[in-house]
Design a protein around this nucleic acid. Structure first.
Lengths: 245, 245
DNA sequence: CGGCAAATTGACACATCTCAAAGCCTGTGG
DNA sequence: CCACAGGCTTTGAGATGTGTCAATTTGCCG
């Protein structure tokens, strides 16, 4: 299967988990023009303040939204897994308020905005599904904000692991209870809003519970239910329910 | 002017700041069915986990998104000013992942989802503008997350004030350099992710700079530019640029 | 085997939270 | 018009969490 086909397949899987995707809609997605490109870990795929004329759909690897502050601190505001339409919102926002960075060896597919605008003219239901993608993104942001503002470092980390676990499952990238989590602890600290040192200690705390193992980029969740309880994870915000939208 | 008309007027003002709104589009907005309702400060307008069949547009007062955790901590993840389509995203998300609370004496207008769905079928450009509203919401979330994760309490607070200042200006609710900011310090602490005590000290720090005054619900910004510099505020994410979307 | 990035550790400084009390407004009823 | 209640704001003091700095260890890749 070509990367372009794979992109459509993953996106469809993502959408199908939330509503029915008709064959016509799927072929509309297939007919979008696509440019495949790969990036190495650490590379900036799209830059803050740029004005892209395409949106990118992640096919393989993991990426993050990254906001850089003047004093060179940074915050990662989201993680992406394959099948995520990473910067779909650039279609509307035009100027990027953050950059997209590769956390891994990454493959993406770029889709011209014109093609997406055509969808908004011709396929109202599919448009709503794409809109839904960005709305779920925002819901994830709210959850993250709540975590950073009000949860302990350990439950914040556990929360992220629970979330990525489920998102990996949706796209069929969960091998039993193992998935790829390629962040360095420095990157993780920028995601959690902690210092690297404290992140390291938090990781050790979580390891000590024996609920997870994490070596290199391999994350193993030994007891998902217990991890959910530990972090008081409530998956409502991921909208993993298929219903008319 | 009726409250329903006022709602349309404010929303149009909001949208016009980002793109051209045609007379036809404006009258489409006017033709949406609307139920006006008022709420007292502290009241929950929409509850977490409910499944609304209408979306609400704020006409007067201020509201917030509120996430309640199991241990009764809470995080406010957004503030809304008049003209904000507060839970437009419920159209797609269906189940609320947070509640909407009144921070003030509040007037809202409820619009049936069916009417909004009709817009997605009939008015692609207007649909994109509504989509844009939710995308800006997400951009504000990212900014807030960055603030909570990486900025000092004082600059976090200053950041919020700068943002609300501009958003008030957009809808013509800025009287010179004064606007209504009806939060209690307890509510503010849930917004900033701080304890009430520390929030109080942070407010005092900011007052000591003489850049703002805040008494009761009256916020006065004495030197907006200096406040922006102080908090390193970059308004890009608010998308206050009119261009084709 | 050497070199480099990432992970880990220890010690100390500082920011923030918690608890508890006091002061200050504002609206209400007498 | 005054007294009072209740909520909000403010203060102080001590406990705890988190950050910083700097050094050490580990693991990977050439």
């Amino acid at each position: 299967m070509s990367m372009a086909d794979r992109a459509v397949e993953l996106l469809t899987r993502n959408l199908s988990r939330r509503d029915t995707v008709s064959p016509e809609e799927k072929s509309l997605l297939a007919s979008l023009r696509k440019r495949v490109q790969t990036f190495h870990k650490g590379v900036e795929i799209i830059s803050q303040h740029s004005r892209p004329s395409t949106s990118c759909l992640l096919v393989a690897g993991m990426t993050a939204r990254s906001v850089l502050l003047a004093d060179s601190r940074r915050q990662l505001t989201a993680l992406h897994v394959p099948g995520d339409f990473v910067d779909l919102h650039a279609l509307l926002l035009r100027t990027m308020d953050h950059s997209i960075v590769a956390l891994d060896e990454v493959t993406v597919v770029f889709v011209p905005h014109e093609d997406l605008i055509a969808i908004t003219r011709e396929a109202p239901h599919l448009t709503r599904l794409l809109w839904l993608c960005t709305a779920i993104d925002a819901a994830i942001h709210r959850e993250m904000m709540t975590s950073i503002g009000r949860r302990s470092p350990a439950s914040r980390l556990a929360q992220v692991i629970c979330e990525i676990y489920l998102r990996m499952e949706v796209i069929g990238q969960l091998a039993g209870n193992v998935f790829s989590f390629p962040l360095t602890q420095t990157e993780l600290s920028d995601l959690l809003g902690l210092s690297v040192v404290h992140t390291n200690r938090t990781v050790q705390d979580l390891r000590a519970t024996r609920l997870i193992s994490w070596q290199g980029s391999t994350m193993t969740v030994h007891d998902f239910d217990a991890l959910c309880r530990f972090s008081r994870f409530d998956p409502t915000y991921l909208n993993l329910v298929s219903e008319p939208r």
